[in-house]
Amino acid sequence: MANPLAEYLQRLGDDRLVLGHRLSEWCGHAPILEEDIALSNMALDLIGHATSILALAGAVEGQGRDEDALAFFRDGTAFRNALLVEQPNGDFAVTLVRQFLFDAYSVLLWDQLSHCGHEGLAAIAAKSLKEDKYHLRHSSEWVVRLGDGTDESHARTQRALDTLWKYTAELFERDAVDDAVAAMGIAVDTAALRSLWDGLVNDVLQRATLTRPPETGPRRGGRTGRHSEHLGHMLATMQSVARAHPGARW
């Protein structure tokens, strides 16, 4: 681990870049116009967060890579996002459940990081927190509306939850990178984070008449570059223009 802080920041940045790109795939395809606008707006926010974080990651790394170099010229195995955010959009329920599970985590994480000992990261966290709180309200309202809706929407939302649940444990795992940045003043209390997330998620699932799935067979690997097949397909699209025309400006 050459530079744990750069590694940690890439994890934060890649989560938002990959989820932001996933949401942008709905642009022009969402079931209603309002949601098309909403998902595209949230994509913009997330890609904005990723831009700030990856710019900082590049500066910390000190090898001359800016946010664009990190986004468009790294291969899949160099991405550090959690597996949850790279899962395909599926139907509308899958997209909104994925968003809700991540938003709840992200809001709680930013709240902790906004008080961390790294000035630049704390500033990004405080800024992003304000925007993610709005996302969380939006995604949690949709989970309640879909779960407590028709038989069809309930069944689809429960299925989405059952499919995605195994990817949530990875969000709360700690490894040597977390310990190393904790020594630098970026100490996230993962246990407290998990407990707050459980409370928030349980509350919304109950209102949505959904059943919390059991903890079986957690999937992990994203933080060390072992991704599902879906990331490569996504990057092939996301990176194609930058790679076909390196250095292009428009």
Partner: peptide, 8 residues
């Protein structure tokens, strides 16, 4: 200072 992080 930016309004929103992703404001174009």
């Amino acid at each position: 200072t930016p309004t929103y992080s992703g404001c174009p």
